[in-house]
Design a protein around this nucleic acid. Structure first.
Length: 422
DNA sequence: TGCTCCCGCCAACGC
DNA sequence: GCGTTGGCGGGAGCA
């Protein structure tokens, strides 16, 4: 297993860049109008309050010394600008078309002519159609740049089941450079992986890789949480509501079936009782939490199929009284991000469900479903809005006013922060 | 045309 | 103050 992993690692080793990565790197460099030369990148800077001993710098490693990685942009500026750099930047800023043509030219400009950038930039129209076609062929497609594929490359770097003795540290910056993407994209992946306890944050810019050892345990706990949140009922409720809405739209309003104001209140995800918390705080909307809730939906679903719109509606923490389409769209975007990572982990796969209103995108759970393992599952300690729910011996469903789904909505989840600590 | 989701801006956060 | 983190939505690729 380890050997395989090393082989895959070798494939994406930055020292032996594959063509597609090299192209991406060059493209990114062009986007930023900054010359990139990895061999000349500035060394990582130590933490500010630590004295720098240059004589020892060569033996610094991330493990030995926590480091503050230098932002890519900062590193790139180590390379002095050429006399034509400012001109190139101005040209680039002036027109996206010109910028695109510059990219195309950059791909095919012979290395020995790199100093002729100024001349080239004045002869933009000389780029023939064949070169453009060639560029189109070589330019990575949208699929090649997808988060799912990126996640696969990311996962290929690390063993699924690492030995307990080996400690793998992930440097976000190194991974980003190695995979030729912005660090922002790595955050997306890492957040979802962290939600499943495959990785955990150990320091700034540093994550520890745990692999899939504890995945069944994590899923089991998520399933239990999902059951306690009564997500299955919520999904059924939303599906029924939609059916009723169809009836209302195209037929007579059903007296018993149409969701009235009282029903609407049942799905009020706002938190009026907890003023200390901010319903819209950054953490509340975290991709981690969203990812965990998304997984919960699958785990509690009998069909193991979750449509994106139902998931989005459940995950939207605002009142359903004022449906906000943009909020819904945003949530769906994030769900696609999460779904891409979960797909790479072979936990879900894309399907479509046909409902009365038409074909809908959905995802089907293809990961493990039976978590009746011999080991005792770790007990999650979700923190709810500033206080902890007693999780062993007590549960969310035992809280006061346990009336579904109002209390479920109030029992917002601050999740899984310490599974691995236990 | 609608679905899908890349991309990067920019604000919150934390040291 | 500055680097890190990540929410967010525009808009382009794709089916």
């Amino acid at each position: 297993m380890e050997v395989n992993c090393l082989t895959l690692k070798d494939l994406i080793n930055p020292r032996q860049p594959r063509l597609d990565f090299a192209v991406e790197d060059r493209e990114n460099a062009q986007k930023e109008n900054i010359f990139v030369d990895r061999s000349r990148m500035a060394p990582k800077t130590p933490i500010k309050n630590e004295p720098i001993d240059l004589s020892k710098q060569k033996i610094f490693t991330p493990e030995r010394n926590p480091i503050t990685p230098v932002k890519l942009v900062d590193r790139q500026q180590v390379e002095p600008w050429t006399p034509t750099a400012n001109l190139k930047m101005l040209i680039s800023a002036a027109s996206p078309d010109i910028r695109d043509r510059e990219k195309k030219k950059g791909l095919f400009r012979p290395i020995e002519n790199k100093d002729d950038a100024f001349t080239d930039s004045l002869q933009l129209d000389d780029v023939g159609d064949s070169a453009v076609d060639e560029f189109e062929k070589q330019r990575p497609s949208r699929k090649q740049k997808s988060l799912g594929l990126l996640c696969q490359k990311f996962l290929a770097r690390y063993p699924s089941y690492p030995l307990s003795t080996e400690k793998t540290t992930i440097s976000l910056d190194e991974v980003a450079v190695s995979l030729g993407v912005e660090r922002r994209r790595i955050y997306d992946i890492v957040n979802v992986l962290e939600s499943l306890q495959l990785v955990s944050r150990v320091a700034k810019n540093q994550y520890g890789w745990h692999g899939r050892h504890s995945l069944p345990k994590t899923l089991k706990n998520l399933q239990r949480l999902g059951e306690e949140q009564k997500y299955e009922e919520q999904m059924a409720y939303l599906q029924q509501k939609e059916l009723d809405l169809m009836d209302y739209k195209f037929g007579e309003r059903k007296k018993d079936g149409y969701p009235d104001a009282q029903d609407q209140q049942l799905l009020d995800f706002s938190e009026p009782d907890y003023p200390s918390s901010s319903a819209n705080s950054r953490k509340d909307k975290s991709l981690r939490i969203m990812s965990q809730k998304f997984v919960m939906l699958f785990l509690v679903s009998k069909t193991k199929i979750v449509t994106l719109d139902v998931a989005a509606k459940i995950l939207i923490e605002e009142s359903q009284d004022t449906p906000d389409h943009s909020k819904f769209k945003t949530k769906v975007r994030r769900l696609y991000d999460i779904a891409n990572v979960l797909t790479s982990l072979a936990l879900i796969k894309k399907v479509h469900v046909t409902e009365e209103r038409g074909r809908k995108p959905a995802f089907k759970w293809i990961g493990p479903v039976d978590f009746s393992t011999n080991g005792k599952a770790a007990c999650l300690r979700p923190v709810y809005l500033g206080f902890q729910i007693p999780f062993s011996g007590g549960s969310c469903s035992k809280q006061k006013n346990n009336t579904f789904p109002v209390i479920q909505a109030k029992c917002k989840v601050r999740l899984l922060t310490s599974l691995l600590e236990q």
